[in-house]
Design a protein around this nucleic acid. Structure first.
Lengths: 229, 229
DNA sequence: CTCCTTAAGTGTTAATTATACATTTCCAAA
DNA sequence: TTTGGAAATGTATAATTAACACTTAAGGAG
C-alpha cells in the first residue's frame, strides 16, 4: 500500500470491551486486573490494540477472546475516547465496545485464569484511565437499546422464568417494575414460548419456564415492529 | 511522554464531518470537492486528520473551520469507521462527526471559496470511500435525536414560522405530519415564543413568527423532561 | 369595491396505550 | 392437613395519540 499521508500524525488505537452479564440478581460487568504497566494490578476493562489487518469489530472480538476465552458474541461499538492524556504512557485513542453475555454459559475456569472478575454495576471498583466514563456511557446505551429491542435475552439462560426476565429489566433500567404490567407487555410482544416445564428452585409452586422465539422475533423485525417497554 | 507500547501498530486517525443544513424545503448536507489524491475531484465529506495535541472533538471543529470557515457549532461523535481498505491510499480509521447548522447564517463566500456545496439528502452525488455509509448512519441518528430533544432549532433561522418548523421535521423524519397535531404538540412543549411579527412571504395572510425560548428549554431539561414528537 | 385565491389558523372525538392495583392458586414441607 | 411463600392472573381509569375539515385573513384581479 502506498503511503500518501506521510506528514500526518499516527496514533495508537485501542479497543476496550465492556462486557455485561447477569446472574439472576444484578447486572454485572467483567473486569480484569491489568497485568502490564502503567497501572499494573489495577482493575480495568478488557483492552488491547487494533492491529494493521483488523477492523475494530474484529479487534474487539479478538481482544475479548484472548482475555477471557469468550468468542462469537454480539458486540457493538459505543464511542471513541480521545482525551490527549487519557493514557499517561502514550497518546492512545480508545474505541469502546460493549457486549452482553450469559454469565453461566461462559467457562468460569478461563475467566479465572485471566484474573477476570464480575462486578455488580452498583459496586464497581476504581478503574484505570477513563474506564468508568466508558461504563457510564455503556449503561446509558444499554438502557436505550433495551427500550427499543428485546436485547436482554443474550443475558439470560436459554430457559428462564418471567421473574428472571423482569429482574433483568429492572437491573438494566435501575427501577422496579409492576409484575402484572410487565407480563402483559411481554406477552403482547408475542416473542416468547411458554414451556410445559417449571423451574422449582424459586418456590414450592414452581414457575413456568420460557424460551425466546428467535423466529417470531425475526419475523416481527422484518414487519418493522418496535419494542417498547 | 514515555513510549510504552512500542510494539503496537499505529494508524492514521481521520475525522469526517457530516454537516446538516436546512433551506426551508429540504434537509441538506455540505460536501466538498476533494482537492488531493486519492480521489481528487470527487465529492466528499469534510475530512482531515487528528493531530497529536487534539482530542477528536477539537479536531472535528478545526477541520470544519479550515474547510468552511464555520466555527463554534454543535458537533457530536457518530461512529468510528475502520474497514481495512476503506481508504485505498493508506490504512486510516475515520471517526465521523455530525453537526447541524443554519444554511443562511453561514457565510456563503467562505463556503464557495472551498468548493463546498449543499446537496439535498434525497439527491446525494456519488461519494468517496465509505462516506455514503456515514451519511446514512448520521441521518438515522439525527432522526433518533430529533425524537428525543428539540434539536432541530439549530437548523432554522432565529425567527421562523410553524410551517418552516414542520417542514424541517418532515424532512428529517422523511414523512408528512398532520398540521394540527404538530402545532398542538409543539405548543404543549411550551418552548417557543410567539412574536407579534408576521412573515409575509409565504401567503397573503402572513404567518406568525416564533422564536426558540432557550431559557424555558433549559429549565425543562433540568426538570428532566423528554421531548417526544 | 367585490370577489377570488391561497395559505394560516384552529378543537373535538375516538382509539389506543399506560398505569394502578389485590386476590387466588399451587405445591412442598412441617 | 395445615401452612407459608411465591406464582399467576384481569380490570378500571387515566393519559396519550391519531384522525379529521372548516373558517379566517388579506392581497391582487377584475
Amino acid at each position: 500500500m502506498v503511503q500518501k499521508y506521510q506528514l500526518e500524525d499516527k496514533v495508537l488505537l485501542a479497543v476496550d470491551c465492556i462486557i455485561f452479564g447477569f446472574d439472576e440478581e444484578d447486572l454485572k460487568i467483567l473486569l480484569i486486573k491489568r497485568n502490564f504497566e502503567p497501572e499494573k494490578g489495577k482493575w480495568s476493562l478488557m483492552g488491547g490494540f487494533l492491529k494493521r489487518h483488523e477492523n475494530l469489530n474484529i479487534a474487539a472480538n479478538r481482544i475479548l477472546y484472548q482475555l477471557t476465552g469468550i468468542e462469537q458474541i454480539y458486540m457493538e461499538q459505543l464511542y471513541a475516547f480521545s482525551e490527549v492524556d487519557r493514557d499517561p504512557a502514550e497518546r492512545t485513542i480508545s474505541v469502546a465496545y460493549f457486549a452482553l453475555i450469559n454469565i453461566k454459559e461462559h467457562d468460569k475456569a478461563l475467566i479465572d485464569k485471566y484474573s477476570a472478575k464480575w462486578f455488580s454495576v452498583t459496586e464497581l471498583p476504581e478503574l484505570i484511565f477513563d474506564h468508568s466514563e466508558m461504563i457510564t456511557k455503556a449503561i446509558k446505551r444499554l438502557r436505550y437499546k433495551t427500550s427499543k429491542k428485546p436485547i436482554g435475552f443474550e443475558l439470560l439462560p436459554e430457559k428462564f422464568t418471567m421473574r428472571q426476565l423482569q429482574k433483568l429489566y429492572e437491573s438494566i433500567l435501575g427501577e422496579k417494575l409492576d409484575k402484572r404490567n410487565f407480563i402483559n407487555k411481554i406477552n403482547a410482544l408475542d416473542i416468547l414460548i411458554k414451556l410445559e416445564e417449571k423451574d422449582m428452585n424459586s418456590s414450592r409452586k414452581g414457575s413456568f419456564l420460557y424460551q425466546f422465539d428467535a423466529e417470531k422475533y425475526q419475523q416481527k423485525v422484518e414487519e418493522g415492529f418496535s419494542f417498547k417497554l
